[in-house]
Design a protein around this nucleic acid. Structure first.
Lengths: 257, 257
DNA sequence: CAAACATTAAATGTAAGACATATGAAAATT
DNA sequence: AATTTTCATATGTCTTACATTTAATGTTTG
């Protein structure tokens, strides 16, 4: 593990990259303890704050964890799906909101991915997943639910469907796609009629999953996608003239007049 | 934006979280300049190194970028798909290698996701995507190719297929699933016969995409999945008795006994 | 007047040293 | 033998200082 002091890049970034590469390559294995900050500082010939900045970078990616005390230090962290979820969701959310990704594009991706889970979910769904789906459908039918709560329940319903596929890799990937849609969905005001239609479609999905009908599950998802797209279309059309992107960049400062 | 000095969590982690929340919530918008490190230190009532550690955490997630000089500072970064790709791939790779995810599970997820792209890719594929797929197939048929190069070409082929769907959100999600498989695939030694079979299946996929046949594309992907699974099965069976997980954790240090 | 050059100020990048605090292990005590 | 104390070690934080980059400003010069 070496760094180039002449490089224009920050030393802490270089050190972080070197350690990250070692972890990815397997040179550093899970639960292995890194040298102490003082030792790393000496190895890389930098000061301790610089080493610490590098370690904080790695900690931000959950690649290491630190422990204080006598036997403490920085340890290679076993990256768990649970830890990776929130990062994945944050990243996906920001990608959508910062890049003027249209509602249509995001929606298309989400349902395409969800349909990918349909055959597996239909084949493997447990009673637990089905119960969660039914419970969320019931919640969605309650009157007086706020739009935010309705959307949150929608996310929970779809996560149950995805988790029903029993594949942690799929669940991880889909978490980003499904949850990142929530801020977009929250922009929509749902009429009672909209909700009733969505509840019906959710019921179709749950029914299809229950009788383990892969094709029907997929078709029901497609129907829901069309409904969602149409709903969004009408809402956005009624609302304003601005694009479908969510957030605009700050105008360039010091612009010439 | 406030932090809790009494919290057991690191101050730099709290500060990073506060700023991250502000970015996700939209309080801080793209290209907006954060206060200088000295100002942030005063605001949060901490020292400058602590602020810097927080900023490095955010930089590691590409949420901010920093610029030196007179008009420099930390700016909210527009998270691009290009920036997000490598992070997604690194995370996915580590998730697979550190969590004893079986080859079968990873493979299932990958092909399920890829099949999700099939209808879109068949409908929208450009001549460019098709050309890339054909070129990679041609490369794969070359004798004398190393296993690594063969796998790399395989990844390129599948990325072209995914990109053919013309949905950046899908491309982003799939990048992780497809590329993270490469280290797993690299463990396999391909015989000439294996390669010929894979090239044939790739050709089937390209042909189906070319004539925009969604169902045939999906079927060809399924056939390739079965082939891959069978191939891996035989390789792993022949190889060893250890599980299909790739990397084991370091034994607990200072263990009794 | 305009262009080239030097100056300056503001900001990040890095270093060094010190102290605070947590924590496990060894030593001392009961 | 069990408990308590001590202690060494490591991270967490603060302070101060200096180096470096960079754009804006001021100055000189053709």
């Amino acid at each position: 593990m070496k760094i180039d002091p002449a490089s224009p890049a920050d030393l802490s970034a270089q050190i972080a990259a070197a350690i990250r590469d070692a972890i990815v390559a397997g040179t550093l294995i899970v639960d292995e303890r890194l040298p102490s900050e003082a030792e790393l500082a000496e190895q890389f010939d930098v000061s301790r704050p610089t080493v610490r900045e590098a370690l904080k970078r790695l900690a931000a990616q959950s690649l290491i964890r630190t422990q204080r005390g006598a036997t403490g230090g920085a340890f290679v962290n076993r990256l768990s799906f649970e830890e990776a979820y929130p990062q994945q969701i944050t990243t996906s959310t920001l990608l959508l909101s910062m890049n003027a990704v249209s509602f249509g594009t995001a929606c298309e991706a989400r349902y395409a991915l969800e349909r990918a889970c349909a055959p597996l979910a239909a084949a493997r769904r447990s009673a637990d997943h089905l119960a969660t789906m039914r419970a969320e459908i019931h919640r969605q039918a309650q009157p007086g639910l706020t739009d935010e709560a309705f959307c949150a329940s929608d996310v929970a319903f779809h996560r149950a469907l995805v988790d029903g596929a029993g594949n942690p890799v799929l669940s991880y990937q889909l978490a980003g796609a499904v949850e990142a849609m929530q801020p977009l969905m929250n922009m929509i005001t749902f009429t009672a009629r909209d909700r009733a239609r969505i509840v019906d479609l959710h019921t179709d999905i749950a029914d299809a999953v229950e009788r383990q009908d892969s094709a029907a599950t997929s078709d029901a998802l497609t129907a829901l996608e069309h409904e969602t797209q149409a709903l969004a279309q009408s809402v956005f059309a009624a609302k304003a003239v601005g694009g479908t992107g969510l957030r605009r960049a700050k105008p360039v400062p010091h612009a010439r007049g």
